[in-house]
């Protein structure tokens, strides 16, 4: 297995976006790309990352391999790469390590690191194809700010989607808060658009703690998609055009 990115920045951001939610995980490498699927330790959220082979500078995977890695260790290794350095990952069949090579574009500095692989029992969950009742596309910075703001007032947020607006509400010991975002088009700046596709109105409650973990992916993508159906996990997708995506799934809080 050998995969090379032209710039380390994307991989650094991907690891920063998931490492606090899932500690150790397996990267599944096939000839179509690298992916990981992992639950957080309390089994409330699920993370699915796909890095497509087309998104790499070069990519070769002769035999499918699952590499168990501590994401905190991977983050440490990647700290040693400059944002504009190229990154090459190499793993030989049966080897218990993965190699990282960072090269500056002027080629005057090359650094190499070897990370020990771990044996990880991963339980892959089947994610059923879902026709969502409401899909909201919005700037990822708006979602990050909304979740951060409401976290000051409560632990949970109720997200209610109607035809032309989406409302985020919370309440706690000191008071209540809500943020309403209205659909708005923008032909010259599609990344600032708020688009709502509503088949059925949806209202669901989620733990803000997890949403704040998810918005660590905001630096990867200008836009985010919230896919919701009543009594179903929320899917928060950060698309990376040409490269792949990070999808987070979060189980709702439900009144017993």
């Amino acid at each position: 297995f050998e995969a090379k990115w032209d710039h380390a920045s994307t991989l650094k951001k991907v690891i920063d976006a998931v490492k606090d939610l899932i500690g150790d995980t397996s990267w599944d490498c096939t000839n179509t790309g690298m992916s990981l699927q992992s639950m957080d330790s309390s089994h409330v959220a699920l993370v699915h990352v796909l890095l497509k082979s087309e998104g790499f500078e070069s990519y070769r995977c002769d035999r499918n391999v699952s590499m168990g890695i501590s994401l905190n260790s991977m983050a440490k290794v990647l700290k040693c790469a400059g944002n504009d350095d190229s990154v090459t990952l190499r793993h030989e069949s049966e080897s218990s390590v993965v190699n990282f090579a960072f090269e500056s574009h002027k080629e005057e500095r090359v650094s190499e690191f070897e990370l020990k692989l771990m044996n990880i029992d991963t339980e892959h969950l089947g994610i059923p194809e879902t026709e969502y009742d409401s899909i909201i596309k919005m700037p990822s910075a708006d979602l990050r700010r909304t979740c951060a703001d409401l976290s000051q007032f409560g632990d949970s947020v109720t997200i209610s989607c109607a035809k032309s607006d989406v409302r985020f509400e919370t309440s706690g010991d000191i008071g209540t808060g809500n943020v309403r975002l209205s659909a708005r088009g923008s032909s010259d700046k599609p990344e600032t658009e708020i688009a709502i596709e509503m088949i059925n109105p949806v209202s669901l409650t989620f733990a803000l703690k997890y949403l704040n973990f998810f918005t660590k992916a905001a630096p990867l993508s200008d836009t985010v998609k919230l896919c919701m159906s009543n009594n179903h996990p929320l899917c928060v997708e950060f698309p990376m055009p040409e490269v792949g995506y990070i999808r987070y799934y979060l189980a709702p809080k439900i009144d017993e």
Partner: peptide, 14 residues
Amino acid sequence: MAQQKSIMNYFKAS
């Protein structure tokens, strides 16, 4: 009080 569900209530091991 709303109860936090597990993601495993919805997605089963494949």
